[in-house]
Design a protein around this nucleic acid. Structure first.
Length: 252
DNA sequence: CCATTAAATTCAA
DNA sequence: TTGAATTTAATGG
């Protein structure tokens, strides 16, 4: 290692010690905050955030709790859900690094209508309502980015409505597989996010048993292969054909 | 939905 | 690293 590199390293390290999650050294280039960093130069905005560590399985947003701010995911993955009448969980979406959690309640709603649980050990960046509002007023570019994000979210949720109301159970399960695959990618040819059958069911709006049975038939048909929670989509195109009549971009 | 068996994962020695 | 304990998956009623 060169001396130059060493200096850079120590510099980064000292920043890290001061604030291990400072936006300045954050790797999440798809984070809204990170993309607008240059606009926050003289602002206290990013210094006024809090970092929250979440263990796997820990719930950090509880349905019905008052909204005080917004979470960004620094590290890890999270599921966002809503509880139905008979206590059944409807998973609204899965979120990964750089994404925003709890935004629906921001501004207008007083209480969260969703819950959120960390699927792995995760680190969150928390911005208070006041802090965020101030920056949104001052910073049109950032506000515009936020608006695009909301628009995109709405598009996704409209697609979700369509998929649940018009697709068969099998199609919804296939669609869920493709969504996770597209969003979280692949590691050693397996989908890079281990989910239980129940979680697939809660996302697809069906039961654990249905998912297990559909997985088995997909396996028989050679569309996927499975090892425990690890799932490999052998032919993405073939799987897409399964839902092709419903049109393509179910980005929910 | 529940019961049973098989399989996978965790955990501690 | 192993295998016993616990959790999760698969299947059939």
């Amino acid at each position: 290692m060169t001396t130059e590199n060493k200096n850079i390293d120590t510099e980064i390290e000292s920043k890290f010690t001061a604030n291990p999650t400072s936006c300045g050294i954050c790797e999440n280039k798809n984070c809204l905050i990170n993309r607008n960093l240059s606009n926050f130069k003289d602002s206290q905005f990013i210094n006024n955030k809090n970092n929250i560590k979440c263990k796997k399985g820990q719930q950090f947003i509880i349905e019905g709790a008052p909204v005080n701010g917004l979470f960004f995911i620094l590290k890890g993955t999270v599921k966002v859900f809503r509880t139905g009448i008979n206590g059944r969980e409807q998973i609204v979406r899965f979120a990964k690094e750089g994404e925003i959690i709890g935004h629906r309640g921001f501004g207008t709603e007083e209480y969260y209508s969703i819950g959120a649980i960390a699927l792995q050990d995760s680190v969150l960046c928390y911005f208070s309502k006041e802090n965020l509002q101030e920056t949104l007023f001052e910073n049109p570019k950032f506000t515009y980015d936020m608006m695009l994000f909301y628009a995109n979210e709405l598009n996704g949720s409209e697609n979700k409505v369509k998929s649940i109301s018009q697709m068969t159970v099998r199609e919804r399960v296939v669609d869920s597989l493709l969504y996770i695959h597209r969003k979280f990618g692949v590691l050693n040819s397996y989908i890079n996010l281990p989910l239980s059958r129940k979680e697939y069911a809660d996302y697809a709006g069906t039961t654990e048993e249905q998912v297990i049975r559909i997985f088995s038939s997909l396996k028989k048909e050679g569309l996927i292969s499975v090892r425990g929670k690890k799932i490999c989509i052998t032919d993405v195109q073939l799987l897409k054909n399964e839902i092709s009549e419903h049109n393509y971009f179910l980005d929910a």
